[in-house]
Write a protein that binds this DNA or RNA. Sequence first.
DNA 1: TTGAAGCGCAACCGATGGTTGCACTTCGAA
DNA 2: TTCGAAGTGCAACCATCGGTTGCGCTTCAA
Lengths: 120, 120
Amino acid sequence: MSAAIDDDLWSAVGDPTRRRMLDLLLSDGGGTATTLSERLPVTRQAVAKHLGVLDRVGLVHAMPAGRERRYEVDEAQLARAVAQLTAVGTTWDARLQRIKRIAERIQRGTADRETGPDQP
Amino acid sequence: MSAAIDDDLWSAVGDPTRRRMLDLLLSDGGGTATTLSERLPVTRQAVAKHLGVLDRVGLVHAMPAGRERRYEVDEAQLARAVAQLTAVGTTWDARLQRIKRIAERIQRGTADRETGPDQP
DNA sequence: TTGAAGCGCAACCGATGGTTGCACTTCGAA
DNA sequence: TTCGAAGTGCAACCATCGGTTGCGCTTCAA
């Protein structure tokens, strides 16, 4: 029961281009599909699709202004995504350390059955 | 310069099915395509493809034994992936906190130009 | 008023996650 | 020894997705 993950949020952040877009939006304090595409190796349409994905999961919000359509990062939602990343990381970390401990104990000679690695 | 990410490793871990597979392999201490597919909502062939991806990036290793083909997690490589997850998380966390500080400073009245959020 | 800047929609292409179907090894029990 | 079942791999097929090009629409400014 460790991976109760919001797959939509994760996969939105899973794409490398979308991660770079979030980086740019954070450091520039917002941007449009056109300005982002100028700083990325993809076309404006590709950026627009990604912005649609990020908007759909709530990681960014669109603010229409005249003929422009400016996007800004939703800080709360991004914080949620960050929390999920670190949660999965710490879960795996804990399991890896537990495995390490068991391996050490076995190698030290105390090799009584430690074959049930599901009940800490 | 914050996101120097090994995209292969990340995207291997980005797929939700592959994350669940890693979870199962960790808690069970290894498994085959067949045993994994019994505990996942996908077919054995889909699992086999995912295992191929995970093997290609070094997150798991195959150990043929008779007619079985057992897979085990490479702990060192998974630790690398975990490190990348938390690295991206902490980067975004730092930026979000910086934005928060700036917003607070502006709202407190010290509204001299804080519009260049790229040089800490 | 006219041209360009910005955007959205649609069609198309390659990679990928998923499926079904089939042939091949390998083990164990008649 | 043989034969069936378990386990695997390969191939074809489909839907989705990231990406592209092309076109038409609005909006601003010279």
